[in-house]
Simulated scan of single mutants.
Amino acid sequence: MADVEYIKGIRRALHQNPELGGEEWETSKRIQQELEGAGIPFKTGFAKTGVLGIIEGGKKGGTVALRADIDALPISEKADVDFKSKVDGKMHACGHDAHTSMLLGTAFRLQEMKDELPGRVLLVFQPNEESTPIGGARPMMEDGVFSEYKPDVIFGQHVWPDLPVGQIGVRDKEMMAASDRLSFTIKGEGGHASMPHQGKDAIVIAAEFISSLQSIVSRNTNPLDSAVITIGTISGGYRYNVIADHVELNGTVRTYSKKAKETVKRRIANLVKGFEVAYEVTIDFDYIEGYDATVNTPEWSELVRSSAAGLLGEKALPDVSPSMAGEDFSRFLTEIPGAFYWLGCAKEGEESPKPLHDPEFFFNEDALEIGIDAMVDVTVNALRKLQVRQ
């Protein structure tokens, strides 16, 4: 059995050598080397860099899948650690290096006890999680990752800096939001800044348009159905004394319910039409549907809860609110029952831990062993539950 220090070494090596989605060739090679060294059969070629490890238990039973994402983000690291990223502009700022190493640690443990396992465990190392709307989950399934062995249940674990080490967050329903993209190009008419009546100022129109977008959430969606519309980038204009003839806006929509999503989508389309008429401009609009909402299957989230309570005690399971962040694991959950849960990883003594996707994000490595123990217990308990059903 590989010890925690060995797993920590894997995590730090991955952290120093981050690879973006679709480029995880060396990360994939390292995963394959570790599985081969542990005597765990595997298959490759799923979504280019994805890997599927297969542990056959010694007894008949069901099939449990465990997923870890393996890609990094285009962020320059600012965290003060000895194993800082060696690649300029790339960083494991979402903890996928920890996810990968913990799944490997879980695989080593399960492989050692495979003769006693009642069923099969699939180890899903997924690329491209950060690349919405395509992602890596759907391409892996399209490439046949589950064509030979269809899981009865799938679990995903994500490090969570909002929780301290030793706590696990899980919900019976929504965990993460649907994540969609927006893009607008407002096409007005340029002119001299001193003569605005001769042009159609795309910047003024954009300002009012952005404010109107926010009224969709406050006045069109049910207050009990969470929704967020954010414009993240604005680009337009040439010079201080020139009326801009076009402005480009890019943003995102986050929702939990399909009803709220459809309401937002419909109202944005209507708003675009209204602004075109009111301001006599053209607005090119694109709504790109991304990841679905990550919604747990109640019976399997309860299994995560009971497993974590047995491992860490009831106090380790605080009530948590869902996050409006998106997650590609949702694509698996649309086809397979399962649960997604959060692993506390906050830096000890830090009152306001840096969030995921922050250049100073810090993963507390004290969470590694807890994450492995939790995933092992969840897997074994799920296999036993499936065995009873047969």
Rank of each mutant, 00 (worst) to 15 (best):
Leu110Ala: 03
Pro196Trp: 00
Val124Ser: 01
Trp25Lys: 15
Gly144Arg: 03
Glu56Ile: 11
Pro139Met: 03
Asn296Tyr: 04
Pro18Asn: 05
Ala316Ile: 08
Asp201Lys: 04
Ser235Asn: 15
Leu110Tyr: 04
Arg181Val: 12
Gln198Phe: 14
Ser28Ile: 10
Met113Arg: 11
Pro353Tyr: 04
Asn222Lys: 09
Thr221Glu: 03
Gly61His: 00
Gly144Phe: 06
Arg384Leu: 15
Lys187Leu: 12
Val124Trp: 03
Asn296Thr: 09
Ala278Pro: 11
Pro355Lys: 02
Ile216Arg: 02
Gln390Tyr: 12
Ser131Leu: 15
Thr132Cys: 15
Glu26Ser: 11
Ile7His: 06
Ala47Ser: 07
Phe340Gly: 00
Asp152Pro: 09
Thr63Trp: 06
Arg266Thr: 15
Gln126Pro: 02
Leu386Tyr: 05
Phe83Val: 10
Met102His: 01
Val277Lys: 08
Arg239Glu: 14
Phe125Glu: 00
Pro196Thr: 05
Pro359Asn: 06
Gly232Tyr: 04
Thr255Trp: 03
Leu271Ser: 01
Asp292Pro: 13
Val159Ser: 02
Asp143Ile: 12
Phe46Gly: 00
Ala93His: 01
Glu348His: 07
Tyr238Ile: 15
Thr63Glu: 04
Glu116Ile: 13
Trp342Leu: 12
Tyr279Leu: 12
Ile372Pro: 06
Ser218Arg: 07
Asp201Glu: 09
Asn17His: 08
Asp292Gly: 14
Phe361Cys: 07
Asp82Gly: 13
Asp115Val: 11
Gly166Thr: 07
Pro298Asp: 10
Glu299Ser: 11
Ala325Asn: 10
Gly53Lys: 02
Ser76His: 12
Met375Pro: 09
Thr185Pro: 12
Trp160Phe: 10
Lys258Gly: 14
Asp180Cys: 08
Glu24Ile: 08
Asn364Glu: 08
Leu356Lys: 03
Gly191Met: 09
